[in-house]
Nucleic acid binder design. Structure first.
Length: 674
DNA sequence: GTGGATGAG
DNA sequence: CGCTCATCCAC
């Protein structure tokens, strides 16, 4: 019986994916004074405690809060015709995601159905509308993102000393190791000093831990789970549809193997299984903290959550699914083997996809236990060196750290729109670009509230025509303090021109606009801002425009609207600060399509004081200009349709009278101004 | 820099 | 399921 580490202070396997360290295979490591007195053991800390906390039916919960409906109201969140979230009251009616709205309503006639917020036409902000239409609206998850950040912020506030890593919009990992150690030393002060007679000095084992009272700390996953009920029906084909967490994890449809399940190589035998360890004490303390934090989230923000507490991220995540909703589960080291062994490994994070399938097919197995017989060498020879992590995961080992990625974790921001009916007109393309730009502007500026110098270094436009995989085009995105919709749309518009052009026969079925390479601008900000502090002089004459013959100024024969300034946009593009710098330029609009900068004529721009008025004027400018484009499109359309046969798909093309876009709201706003 | 692959929900 | 979002990496 080799009780692992005798020299825990010497990480013999530094870093790389070397042989699995005995230290980590051991589920019951000897914990010494050095362990509890050390500060930076990181993932090697035998007292490490991690939790995963996720919000129950998050989108649905968000909507319930927003709409202030009673907690027991069955509610689903809709995205077009699909359900993307179903709250627990609604699940009682057998409603699941993937159901259609109609089916859901059939199951529960009084179901509350909420469609996600969408950007409508040119609205600057998403909203909840009655007339959602995938052809004219774009989904916005912004509200959920904000709520998600509130929760994360509350966790950080409630759990000082913890690392909090937002793992997704509704999940966060929390590393409790540090505060737990502090509390441990506080509650058991005798741990703080190595006894004079300790045989190995600071490397001596700690005295036996006190018993742990798990009451009120959550559900403790049993070390010896009750045996699975006798197989009622051999047809294991029956998928557990949408039970979600209701199923007993310890009996997941019986392993396919007929031979006795392999067991983990542990030192736990018989009665010793339930012996309390110091790690158990640590788990219980973390559970207390987690509980309080969750209570606070419920109290302050009214979000119900479920949490898992275990020795690492991977296990915490698994444990969290043990009881839902509003559950908290604790996975003791001693319970790991029997919890893991019957687990279908394809449920494990990162094994849910192609890789997991490869494993399943390679060995014709389905559970973690089945895979335990595969040696590391075997695994690596078939799946590469990298598969060590799989080998370890199967044994409850996960070295990944919980790191607070603060706010700058997000490396990219993408707004996309799939078009059920492919668009065929340039104006539509620019319209969507503007919508996507609005979303990006909102999100970037939002992120900047927390990290002012956030800077997406490149902007990418992706468009897919009909079938083809789709192509993308990118360009550097200059740092600007003031990131406006216009600015992004102008950049996007330019990319569009390069990517799609103005061909009237295009059929674009998806448009994506993204920021990538998001980071913090260090000295960059000052440099640029300072550099352009004095008015940018170089304004090109209109003649310079001709310098770029390649640019698809295709239908250029058409006259320009009077309002369009003579200024060249390339100027704008090369010197993005121009707009935000020069005072009067505040009142200008750059068309993403023709790349012209438009300003109100002197008469109308006289006294614009507030920011709102400014917006109003700009909106007016934009609409007016868009209308001009609209007219041009009409002309062009007639030209093409008269000369050429129309493609079948484009039925509405020539026949239907074109509907003039109207934004009464925006226009009204514009004209009701004094 | 482009574009594909993968994966989570 | 269909859609949206994010990351990574080969070329």
């Amino acid at each position: 019986m080799d009780l692992g580490p005798t020299s825990p202070t010497k990480p013999s396997w530094k870093g790389k994916s070397r042989a699995v360290n005995q230290e980590f295979v051991d589920l019951n490591p000897t914990i010494t004074y050095r362990h509890i007195l050390s500060q930076n053991l990181g993932v090697k800390d035998p007292l490490r405690v991690v939790a995963l906390c996720d919000s129950d039916a998050f989108y649905a919960a968000c909507e319930m809060n927003r709409l202030q409906v009673p907690p027991d109201t069955p509610l689903v969140v809709l995205q077009w015709e699909s359900l993307i979230a179903v709250n627990y009251p609604a699940r009682k009616y057998g409603i699941s995601r993937m159901d259609k709205k109609k089916d859901a309503l059939k199951r529960c006639p009084h179901l509350k159905v909420v469609h996600v917020a969408t950007y409508k036409e040119g609205e600057a902000e998403p909203g909840y509308w009655d007339d959602v239409d995938t052809n004219t609206h774009k989904v916005s998850l912004d509200y959920y993102r904000r709520e998600s950040m509130k929760i994360a912020a509350l966790f950080r506030e409630m759990l000082p000393g913890c690392e909090v890593e937002k793992a997704s919009i509704d999940e966060a990992f929390i590393d409790f190791t540090k505060p737990v150690r502090d509390i441990l030393l506080e509650r058991y002060p005798y741990l703080a000093t190595v006894p004079a007679d300790a045989p190995y000095g600071i490397d001596s084992p700690l005295p036996p831990p006190p018993p742990v009272d798990w009451e009120g700390k959550g559900t403790v996953v049993p070390v010896h789970p009750p045996p699975p009920p006798p197989d009622p029906k051999p047809s294991s084909k029956e998928e557990d549809s949408e039970r979600e967490g209701e199923t007993e994890p310890q009996s997941p449809g019986a392993s396919t193997s007929t031979t006795p399940l392999p067991t983990l190589d542990t030192d736990l035998h018989g009665e010793e299984d339930d012996t309390t360890t110091w790690h158990d004490v640590a788990l219980s303390i973390a559970s207390e903290l987690m509980f309080k934090a969750r209570q606070e989230v419920l109290k302050q923000l009214n979000y119900s959550t479920s949490a898992g507490v275990a020795r690492n991220k991977f296990l915490a995540k698994l444990a969290a699914s043990y009881r839902k909703p509003d559950g908290q589960s604790i996975l003791r080291n001693a319970a790991i083997p029997n919890y893991l062994i019957p687990m279908p490994f394809q449920k494990i994070r990162f094994l849910g996809g192609k890789l997991g399938k490869a494993f399943a097919e390679q060995y014709d197995v389905s559970t973690v236990g089945d895979l335990l017989t595969i040696s590391l060498d075997e695994m690596q020879s078939k799946f590469g060196e990298e598969s060590v992590w799989v080998y370890e995961i199967l044994r409850g080992i996960d070295r990944s750290e919980v790191k607070d990625k603060g706010t700058t974790l997000t490396k990219s921001m993408l707004a996309s729109k799939n078009l059920p009916k492919p668009i065929t007109k340039a104006s539509e393309g620019y319209h969507w670009i503007r919508v996507l730009a609005a979303e990006l502007a909102l999100r970037l500026n939002d992120a900047r509230k927390l990290s002012p110098n956030l800077w997406p270094k490149t902007i990418v436009l992706h468009a897919r025509k009909g079938y083809e995989p789709g192509r993308s085009k990118q360009a550097p995105f200059p740092f600007t303090k003031d990131v406006t919709v216009d600015f992004i749309a102008a950049a996007g518009g330019k990319l569009w021109k390069e990517l799609v052009g103005n061909t009237s026969t295009m059929k674009v079925s998806s448009v994506q606009l993204a920021f990538t390479g998001i980071g913090v601008s260090e000295a960059g900000q000052q440099t640029i801002e300072g550099f352009f502090g004095s008015k940018p002089p170089s304004k090109r004459s209109r003649d310079d425009v001709k310098e770029h013959p390649g640019e698809a100024r295709a239908q250029e024969g058409i006259d320009r609207p009077a309002e369009v300034s003579k200024e060249d946009v390339d100027n704008q593009m090369e010197d993005p600060q121009a707009r935000s710098r020069s005072g009067t330029d505040e009142l200008s609009y750059t068309c993403p399509r023709c790349q012209k900068t438009i300003r109100p004529n002197a008469a109308s721009s006289t006294t614009v004081q507030t920011e709102e008025e400014c917006e109003t004027v700009l909106t007016g400018l934009r609409l007016e200009h868009d209308d001009w484009h609209f007219a041009q499109d009409l002309v062009r359309e007639e030209a093409t349709s008269s000369g050429k046969r129309i493609i079948p798909g484009q039925t509405t093309q020539g026949s239907k009278p074109k509907k003039r876009r109207k934004e009464t709201k925006g226009i009204e706003k514009f004209f009701t101004r004094k």
